[in-house]
């Protein structure tokens, strides 16, 4: 049975925790709004990029000069999983659900006899993967010093990927991130980055002015050469922004839960405190009365 003083200390500490979780929830809510706006603002670019790329893909279909980044190098022996996670924890199952999806796919690939490598973007995913696949992690890119993810960061990741692909370090690259659905729902998603062909075919239908004869300056293959790496960056950028929004959403609901739990705990402890206090008063009264009766 805890003493009155113990209970008082515990109540105070839970109250302090509640204040922190409440503050974190509010901060996450404010950041979420900004992250969501950024994700929405990046959409027009990604959409138009996809349209142009689909158009070009049609024009150059079957062309042996088409960039290998788009058509792939014909092999699929080595898979690179690019796992994008947050820099910080305390956001519910956000990081672990992304990693779980990547690990699940990695096990499948390994069972099929493929070689699997990991590139971690964000510290938290690295921390988890390090324990499972220490040997297979080829790099970590963290944005600890970056306050807001911008196109510059996507650029870095994209360049690294293209360099690695050209050096023959992998054949297929897949990007893992959490797609932002709503504050309470973030869906871990895998997106194939290299080769990009599969993804382009899917968006072929919304090609505008499909039959227009385009003039190219310089020619179509040159443009495609320049465009495909750019598209990779744009996809990464979108993933990073989606991730940022998802992270804040996940943190917001996690902290909301934590605040509510702390509230329940305070109620329970306060009740116990009052009961104990009353019990003590009753006990003292009995002692006084029985003392008086004995006289």
């Amino acid at each position: 049975m805890p003493s009155l003083k113990d209970l008082k200390v515990r109540i105070a500490s839970v109250k302090a925790t509640q204040k922190i979780t409440k503050a974190m929830q509010l901060v996450a809510a404010a950041k979420l709004r900004r992250a969501q706006e950024a994700a929405e603002a990046s959409r027009p670019y990604a959409e138009r990029m996809a349209a142009v790329l689909a158009n070009l893909a049609q024009m150059t279909a079957g062309d042996p000069d088409a960039p290998v980044l788009m058509t792939g190098n014909g092999k699929s022996d080595t898979h690179l999983l690019v796992v994008c996670t947050a820099e910080r924890g305390l956001c519910g199952g956000f990081n672990s659900s992304i990693v779980r999806k990547a690990v699940f796919d990695a096990r499948d690939l390994m069972a099929a006899g493929k070689e699997v490598k990991f590139l971690c973007v964000g510290r938290k995913g690295f921390d988890i993967l390090r324990r499972l696949f220490r040997e297979q992690i080829v790099g970590l890119i963290d944005f600890k010093s970056v306050r807001r993810v911008g196109f510059q960061q996507a650029h870095e990741v994209g360049d690294k990927l293209v360099d690695m692909f050209e050096a023959g370090e992998f054949d297929v690259a897949t990007l893992y991130y959490a797609e932002f659905r709503s504050v309470i729902s973030q869906k871990p998603t895998g997106l194939q980055l290299i080769p990009a062909a599969a993804e382009v075919h899917a968006s072929e239908e919304d090609t505008h002015a499909g039959n227009a004869v385009y003039e190219y300056e310089p020619d179509a293959t040159d443009i495609l050469d320049a465009l495909v790496p750019r598209n990779i960056r744009v996809q990464i950028f979108r993933a990073l922004l989606e991730n940022a929004a998802s992270e804040q959403g996940a943190r917001m609901s996690a902290m909301d839960n934590a605040t509510r739990n702390a509230g329940e705990m305070i109620d329970r402890l306060t009740l116990q405190y009052n009961r104990t206090r009353q019990a003590q008063i009753t006990k003292e009264l009995i002692e006084i009365i029985s003392g008086a009766e004995a006289l």
């Binding site: 227009a212 385009y214 190219y216 443009i223």
Partner: peptide
């Protein structure tokens, strides 16, 4: 340099 005006032929340029 290139200038695009209304009615320009379909063009994709870097």
């Amino acid at each position: 340099e290139l200038q695009v005006m209304a009615g320009h032929a379909p063009l994709l340029a870097l």
